[in-house]
């Protein structure tokens, strides 16, 4: 991007968008909060609760791709950095402490057996933890607190109100703490720079205490103002900037269809997994199989299950890529137009 920006030239439009509000630019974040929330609910729960290796691999790959894609758009990199050590820990933990399984590969220094099954389960739980952590990082980038409040404002109104007020207070208190510290320096009560830690702690405590007084007085004013505006009276509505349109309804239908198919296939045990005592994947459906034709179709049904899961998991990534492609094509067009 930098080569495009020369002195005296307006920055490209893309910058203006991504600097204003990082989530604006993400295509998936532009959908209705309900769609966002259901998607993350699905991927986190399925990843955390169903240890099928193919499902975990699909989910992890999608989480990696989506978080890498969102990380370019100023998502915090925390999740990406945190995932590898946690995943390594999961493998080590399982191998060291789980001695179930019948395939013994060797013996640990402690004398306990090292089994193939515990290694496999360790690998699966590494994918599970990595997937959940990365999905949670994406969740943080896409489900901003205003969306959360929009969804849960009616279910738990008091808690949501506290949440939204606390989030608003954070930047305010940071600014106020800086103001108090500078005022204290001004009247000669600041901490000299090579202060001992205890004095620093004490000064921090005093700033905090000043801030608490101010914040509480301020809070009373806020609540009186809320009362004056009729907080808690019946019949009041809240403004929301979200509309469930056809685009969102389309995605909801896709989710519903995919999840229904998956539930049927998982609970009929056509797609299944068991790690102990022996690792068995897709052991079979309802036994005995109703008909030979139905049994012969098992591989097809398994492929359908994997496809459904992949379709849901990769959906945001697909939307981002599509958006990028549209954007790039439109911008190339604009540049050509501008050259004329």
């Amino acid at each position: 991007m930098p080569p495009l920006q020369r002195a005296g030239q307006a920055p490209p439009l893309r910058w203006a968008v991504s600097m204003g509000n990082a989530t604006q630019y993400s295509a998936f974040a532009g959908y209705h909060p309900l769609v966002n929330y259901l998607f993350f609910g699905y991927v986190v729960l399925v990843t955390a609760l169903f240890p099928h290796p193919v499902f975990l691999a699909i989910s992890f790959a999608a989480a990696l791709g989506t978080s890498a894609c969102l990380a370019r758009r100023s998502m915090p990199k925390f999740g990406l950095l945190l995932a590898p050590p946690l995943m390594a820990l999961a493998v080590v933990f399982n191998v060291c402490f789980t001695h179930r399984g019948v395939t013994i590969l060797g013996y640990l220094p402690s004398g306990n057996p090292l089994t193939l099954e515990s290694l496999l389960y360790g690998a699966a739980s590494a994918l599970m933890i990595g997937g959940v952590v990365l999905w949670c990082a994406c969740y943080g980038a896409v489900m901003t607190s205003d969306k959360f409040l929009y969804l849960f404002g009616r279910v738990v109104p008091a808690m949501s109100l506290i949440l939204s007020m606390a989030l608003r207070f954070l930047p305010r208190y940071r600014a106020q703490a800086a103001r108090i510290a500078s005022a204290r320096r001004g009247i000669g009560m600041g901490v000299s720079s090579p202060a001992n830690p205890l004095a620093k702690l004490r000064a921090g405590g005093e700033i905090l205490s000043v801030m608490v007084t101010w914040a509480l007085e301020n809070a009373i004013e806020t609540s009186d103002s809320m009362r004056a505006r009729g907080y808690g009276l019946p019949g009041r509505t809240a403004y929301a900037n979200y509309r469930l349109d056809d685009r969102d309804r389309g995605l909801l239908v896709v989710f519903a269809v995919a999840i229904t198919i998956l539930l049927v296939l998982v609970f009929s045990r056509i797609v299944s997994v068991s790690y102990y005592p022996v690792f068995v994947m897709n052991a079979g459906g309802a036994s005995p199989a109703p008909t030979v034709v139905w049994a012969a179709a098992y591989p097809v049904w398994r492929a359908v299950a994997y496809a459904c899961h992949a379709a849901v998991c990769f959906l945001p990534l697909g939307l981002e890529v599509r958006e990028d492609w549209i954007w790039r094509r439109a911008r190339t067009g604009m540049l050509v137009d501008g050259a004329d």
């Binding site: 506290i162 208190y173 905090l208 608490v212």
Partner: peptide, 19 residues
Amino acid sequence: KPQARELVVIAVMVAIIVV
């Protein structure tokens, strides 16, 4: 159905804990 004033004080404490 807590009062507005109670909610604001709790919100203040939450924000202070986070800060």
